[in-house]
Design a protein around this nucleic acid. Structure first.
Lengths: 170, 170
DNA sequence: TATTGTTATACTCTATAACTATA
DNA sequence: TATAGTTATAGAGTATAACAATA
């Protein structure tokens, strides 16, 4: 599938051929493949792909409130509850009341969670090798860096912007 | 979120810091953001993100059977039926019986579908700008190329491999 | 008998609404 | 009154099973 476009040269579109270079569909396409592959690999560890996403966010961004986590994951707060219940039961994550505002729960990775996340990532190597088979190691590294940088900033700001000004198209 | 790792330099992991560079979680993370942004933009066009993925696959790989499409999308064949019903009703896609094997439906993009796909991709520009805000144009182009190349090959071969040899871990 | 596509149905994921406690 | 988190519940997404047509 998706033939053509070999190597990284930027294809010059033909005269009438209005070549769009939108990554959206490709992103979803690959993410789905990755998720399906990951599920079977992660199952023995008692984890699901979404757990790994949450753990990854917590490792990268550090501890945060459930609401902030929901914002980052672009997930409804109600679903975060169940997600964290799973992770807390497995002692991968810790919820503690914020001293400043006792309504809040501050969520953080436990030491065990950090270790487990690393193990899971190792286990996922084969799934990733499979999905990214067409890329060589250097390209995979480049992809990782791009994805990581694109993940910076996050929609937290965007979510806040909407709350302050609902007219904003976000 | 996801601080650090500025620019494309390959971070050298610290001594005890076993830095994994797995793209799986990031891929899902960004794909979800992209999907949520895309939904609102696509709604006026009567399309959903998954429709765009299917149309994109059909454009890149050309016409194929429903089964092949299901394999490429890593979607159950039953769901492809509904997906194609939507697209066919909107005259974006065409189903015709294969002359060689009358059990098969050959699915292909209509001219209208090709045009509509291009329009949709234009409409998605703002959503993509939003999600990939942290990347400059050159980096976005690189990302597009990497995603596109990674999408090559596809799991069609993999699916066939399973059918021929169920023991294969795919 | 096996395969392509379809329909009917059950299961999982995700979001909306009502509730508790803090502020 | 408003906000953080929780619970209960309904809607959408996805897969499994039985069926029709063709090979």
């Amino acid at each position: 599938m998706f033939r053509g476009g070999g190597k990284l040269g930027h294809m010059t579109a033909g005269p009438g051929e209005h070549r769009e270079r939108r990554s959206g569909a490709l992103l979803e396409f690959l993410a789905r493949r990755m998720r399906l592959r990951s599920e079977s690999v992660l199952a023995p560890l008692g984890l699901r792909p979404r757990h790994l996403v949450a753990l990854t966010v917590l490792r990268e961004a550090g501890e945060m409130s459930q609401q902030a986590l929901a914002g980052s994951l672009q997930l409804d707060g109600t679903n975060v509850v169940g997600l964290l219940n799973d992770l807390e039961t497995a002692d991968l994550v810790e919820r503690r009341r914020s001293p400043e505002d006792r309504r809040r729960h501050v969520v953080s990775l436990t030491e065990h969670g950090t270790k487990r996340l690393n193990e899971a990532e190792c286990a996922l190597a084969s799934a990733e090798d499979d999905v990214l088979a067409a890329l060589d190691p250097v390209e995979r590294d480049t992809l990782y860096d791009l994805l990581r940088r694109a993940s910076s900033g996050g929609p937290a700001t965007c979510t806040e912007a909407i709350r302050d000004n609902p007219d904003v198209l976000c």
